[in-house]
Structures are given as structure tokens and as C-alpha cells.
């Protein structure tokens, strides 16, 4: 039995110390997924915490039919959708990227370029419905298979594919337009790209 399976079994039996190991192991991936779902650091922290709390409460029912990580990511997107619905009711609109907290590295120019790219990406993601964003992120960011997503969300694989396709189409439209805009005014990403992709 791996350490993780052991920790899951112990946490399932009510051991908080074992659950803490799981929080340590998954906090970054859960937080980053929350951040993409919500678009800002403050809400992402709240959603990530809710997701872990839901995992703790629901662990006794977790039967290992999916991977623990997949189950946890689904709890995360679920918590985010609930949160966004609540916030929409209270604030009247889904928050945009008010304060996307990014730890950009490199030169100031690279940091600025990275921040701009991340802002554009988050703005594009925010145009998707939370349900489409959920499927897009589970597939593209967490690499879950169509079957896994379908099982977790109780959807047919065909529905998963069509929602993913719609989400991609919308993101393609927005991002390629942005790309043309940046491309015509300045070669914003050329320096970084040469280094990153060795084209």
C-alpha cells in the first residue's frame, strides 16, 4: 500500500493527522484549480478550503471508484460552482480577474508579459459558464479523461465532449483575436517563446 493510500484509509477512518498529509500534498493543485475557476486569490482560498472540508466530511463515503485526486478536483470545481452561484446572487455578477495573484519570475519585462498572458487567459475563462469552465479545466489542466469526467459529474461521455468542444471554441475565438491584436501591435511573446519552446 502506498503512503497516499495509507493516508487516505486512515483519514477515512477519522484520523486528522493523515488528512493533513493529503492537504499538504494537494493544496497547490487544488488552489490553482480554484484560482482558475474563481479568477481571484481571495475566492480561490475560500473555495479550496471548502473543497478540502468537503473531502474530509465525505471521505467515509469515498469508495475508491475514482482516483482520490480526481475526486478531490471534482469537489473543488463543485465548491467553486456553488461559490460562484452564491456570489452572483450577492454581488449580482461573477467576479472578473480583480486580483489574480501571480508569482511571475524572470525579468520585469518577462513578468509583465506573463502577467498580461495570465490576465488574458483568465478573462477568456471567465466568459465560459462555470459548468463549461469546470469541464475544460478538469480536462486541460488536470488531464482527466472524458470517462473520468463523465463518471464524476454523472454525465454521458458525449455530453462531456460536446461541452468541452464548445468551451474550446469559445476560448479559441477570444484568445486568437487577442493574439492577432497583440501580434499586429508588438511581438509580445517572441522572446519568451524562443527560450521555452526552442522553435
Amino acid at each position: 500500500m502506498t503512503d497516499e493510500l495509507h493516508a487516505i484509509a486512515r483519514a477515512k477512518a477519522g484520523d486528522p493527522a493523515a488528512f493533513e498529509q493529503l492537504v499538504e500534498a494537494y493544496q497547490t493543485s487544488v488552489y490553482r484549480l480554484s484560482l482558475r475557476m474563481c479568477g481571484n486569490d481571495h475566492d480561490a482560498q475560500e473555495v479550496a478550503q471548502e473543497a478540502f472540508l468537503a473531502a474530509w466530511k465525505g471521505l467515509p463515503s469515498f469508495r475508491g471508484e475514482s482516483k482520490f485526486s480526481s475526486w478531490l478536483y471534482q469537489l473543488t470545481t463543485h465548491a467553486a460552482i456553488d461559490f460562484l452561484r452564491r456570489e452572483k446572487r450577492h454581488r449580482g455578477a461573477v467576479p472578473l480577474d480583480e486580483q489574480l495573484d501571480l508569482a511571475a519570475e524572470g525579468t520585469p519585462q518577462q513578468a509583465a508579459e506573463e502577467a498580461e498572458l495570465q490576465r488574458t487567459l483568465q478573462q477568456a475563462l471567465n466568459t465560459l459558464t462555470p459548468e463549461h469552465r469546470e469541464i475544460f479545466l478538469l480536462r486541460q489542466m488536470r488531464q482527466l479523461s472524458y470517462e473520468e469526467i463523465g463518471k464524476l459529474l454523472d454525465l454521458e461521455a458525449g455530453t462531456v465532449k460536446s461541452r468541452l468542444s464548445r468551451a474550446k471554441k469559445q476560448l479559441r475565438n477570444i484568445l486568437t483575436k487577442q493574439g492577432n491584436l497583440f501580434g499586429s501591435s508588438s511581438d509580445l511573446y517572441s522572446d519568451r517563446e524562443e527560450g521555452d519552446h526552442a522553435l
Binding site: Y31, R36, L102, A103, A104, Q118, L121, M141
Partner: peptide
């Protein structure tokens, strides 16, 4: 770049 580099 979806993953990003933000940390909790």
C-alpha cells in the same frame, strides 16, 4: 500556461 505558478 493554465497551471500558472501561484501558490496558496
Amino acid at each position: 500556461g493554465l497551471e500558472g505558478s501561484a501558490l496558496p
